[in-house]
Structures are given as C-alpha cells and as structure tokens.
C-alpha cells in the first residue's frame, strides 16, 4: 500500500481528528489564559489567604501529572455529583493544568516591570486598578508573550492525552487506524507530522506575529 493510498483511505479520519484537536486546543487555551490571569494576580495579592490559595492551586496542578488530573476529573468527579462529558472534561483538565504554569508566567512578567513604572503611576495618583490595567499590565504583556508561545505548544501536545478518555482527537484517530491496519509508521507518523505543523507552522509564527503587532501598537501609543 502506498502512502497516497493510505491517505486516500484514512485521510478523512486524520482530518476529523485534527479538527477535534484544534477545538480542544483553543478551548483549553482560553481557559488556561483566564486561570493564569486570575491565579497570577492572586499570587501577587497582599492578602495572605488570597495569595496562598493561588499557591495551593498552582502547586497541586504543577505537582501532579496531567494524566492523573484528567482521570480524576473524568472518573472521580462524577462521584461528587459533577459529571462532565468527555469532550468537556478533556479541555478543562488541559486548561486547568496549563493555567497553573501560565500563572507563574503572568506573575513573573508583572514582577519584571521596573518598579519605577509602578511608582510613577502612583505619583500620578492612579488607582490600583488603573495602575495595573493602564501601566503595568500592558508592559507585562509584551514580556510574557514569548513564554506563552512555548506554553501553547505544550498545551497542544497535552491535548493528545484526551484521547485516553476517548475524545476522538488526532491522537485517538491515529491509534484507531493503527489498530485496524497495523500500519504504525503511516498512522503515528502522519499524526506526528500534523502536530509538528500545528506547533511550528501555526502557533510559533502566530505568536511571533502577535509579538510584533503588539510592540508596534505599544510604541505608537
């Protein structure tokens, strides 16, 4: 069987899987960003309870495996009366996990904005909220984009695990094709290449573009 015949026969499944992978990635990324912002800011709070609850969240999600978290959310949460559909459980687990890593990125970036910026905003008598929103955060945003680029690639890779709770993503389809045809190189190899294209030819250039656009915007403003 040539590779062209293989694609002809199984290409549609790989495409279906890729679409699910893209959906999982986007939804998980949105969730991760939201969690990262909230937890990252909470980590900088002067209130001990707020600060330490963020720390606990971050340490739990960074200290255990994503696979453990995924299984826990999918198999154990129902015992507490929270039953999630597998698709939902998938991106929630990935998003919550990467959100914990993102929180540290957010915190780090905010802390690397020079202290003089904060003081200047204070001297202008800006409120704490507008200090953060108008002065500190925009500068932090530029600093945090490159690490976010890496996180999104990690996130895309992490979505492959949702196949283990039978979400029919790219990884799942590759496994199915392998199971029926035993053409492992073709099945898994094609999936590897598709993931590679998504990371290096979509996410990486996309983030570069965003960085450039943002710094242009900032220097004009």
């Amino acid at each position: 069987m040539t590779y062209a015949e293989f694609l002809n026969e199984h290409g549609a499944r790989l495409i279906d899987g890729s679409i699910i992978t893209v959906q999982q990635t986007i939804l998980a990324a949105l969730l991760a960003i939201a969690i990262a912002l909230v937890m990252g800011l909470m980590r900088l709070s002067s209130n001990y309870v707020v600060r330490s609850s963020a720390t606990v969240y971050i340490e739990i999600f960074r200290g255990t495996s994503l696979l453990v978290q995924l299984y826990w959310i999918f198999f154990v949460l129902p015992l507490f009366g929270i039953t999630l559909e597998k698709f939902t459980a998938g991106f929630i687990a990935v998003g919550m996990n990467l959100g914990a890593y993102g929180a540290e990125v957010v915190r780090g970036a905010i802390q690397s904005v020079p202290k003089g910026q904060y003081e200047a905003a204070l001297a202008l008598n800006m409120s704490p909220f507008s200090r953060m929103r108008r002065i500190i955060f925009p500068q932090a945003l530029i600093l945090m984009l490159p690490p976010w680029g890496n996180l999104f690639i990690e996130l895309l890779k992490a979505t492959a695990l949702v196949s283990l709770i039978s979400v029919t993503d790219l990884m799942f389809q590759a496994k199915q094709i392998n199971g029926t045809t035993y053409l492992s190189i073709e099945a898994f190899g094609s999936a590897l290449v598709i993931y590679y294209i998504m990371s290096r030819l979509v996410i990486t250039p996309g983030m570069r573009w965003l960085e450039r656009a943002l710094s242009r915007h900032m220097s004009r403003a």
């Binding site: 990884m171 590759a174 053409l183 492992s184 190189i185 999936a191 993931y195 990371s199 290096r200």
Partner: peptide
Amino acid sequence: VEFIRSTPLVLQIFFVFYVGPQ
C-alpha cells in the same frame, strides 16, 4: 530536536512501541 519538542510524548511512545513490530 525541534521535531521531538513539537510533538506529543504520548504519541512518540506509541510510535516507538508499535513501529518496531512492523
């Protein structure tokens, strides 16, 4: 190195395990 870093580990595990028998 770029390729390995850009693709999921779980897929690589399957790949190494199943490609051998082929």
